[in-house]
Design a protein around this nucleic acid. Structure first.
Lengths: 161, 161
DNA sequence: ACTGAAAGACGTCGAAT
DNA sequence: ATTCGACGTCTTTCAGT
């Protein structure tokens, strides 16, 4: 009964999956390109894409930028615990975290920590400032453990289908 | 002197940054839309976008799919250590990991573990099979520690600019 | 559900300021 | 570096199968 699930549920066939796979690798393929690859004319492909958008399978189209070129070449994972686990304190933490633009991902996790943050900054100095000025200003953080990314093997936003 | 840095280095102005910000939120904005938002006509905006693509600031355009709808609603972080840290064993591990479609991200990290993996699967059963059949088949893994995502607070592919 | 064609919008480029 | 204008291509729709 969640608010996000109010899309129509539809059946996808093999062609739909092929279209989704191609679009999550290159969203600027034209309908014509897609049509050629699935051996159809443009009309059914156009209608399938619209169907997939309206049904919520395709949530958005985004440009992938180069973090390093934009001076955000240091990726840090920060695992955080809260001092208390009431809903109110959790909600406040979430609200505070969402205001920090350096935090590009935040998940509530199982295990020793409560939250996992992925942070993008320019360098160590900027990360130090982030921890001291921004993370340090958030209430009810019990502990924070930083892990630094040394090398990127694979970084995809694609869903494995 | 890295291989990836062979793009021309150019200076970006405020308008370029505004265009990048908009495109990483909605890549299907038309040149016309962008032009209206930055108070220019289409031609300079078109040329700026092409410039940003050629200079490597924009690496790609992708469709963002709904993982839950596509039956990949369980996200798991898996921290892995290798038994030995030679370049050869590391390279083989990387090669093996890249062949697993469930692994959507893989980073070489500092700290207690060597690699961080983000994995998307349908449910716990599928994750169990992934660990037993796929991860378990990879040589030279010393230990693997799984953390399960219980809730998504923020999940963006955007670079904070 | 697909094909083919037709209309309109947009991307794309040249000339000009 | 931007505007204007023209052309080609793509998106989008519709009649027909």
């Amino acid at each position: 009964m969640s608010l996000e699930e109010n899309y129509p549920t539809i059946m996808l066939d093999e062609t739909d999956f092929r279209i989704l796979k191609m679009l999550q690798n290159r969203a600027n393929l034209t309908t014509k390109d897609l049509a050629a690859k699935v051996n159809l004319s443009t009309t059914p492909v156009f209608e399938r894409v619209k169907k997939l958008e309206k049904a919520g399978y395709i949530k958005n189209y985004v440009a992938v930028l180069d973090a390093g070129k934009l001076n955000k070449g240091l990726m840090v994972f920060c695992n955080v615990t809260l001092k208390e686990h009431t809903r109110e304190i959790g909600n406040q933490f979430v609200k505070d975290i969402l205001s920090l633009k350096e935090v590009v991902e935040c998940f509530n996790i199982s295990g020793d920590y409560d939250f996992f943050l992925k942070i993008l900054v320019r360098d160590m100095k900027e990360y130090q400032n982030f921890v001291l000025d921004k993370l340090g200003g958030i209430k009810n953080i019990g502990s924070a453990h930083s892990t630094f990314v040394m090398g990127e093997i694979k970084n995809s936003y694609a869903v494995p289908i």
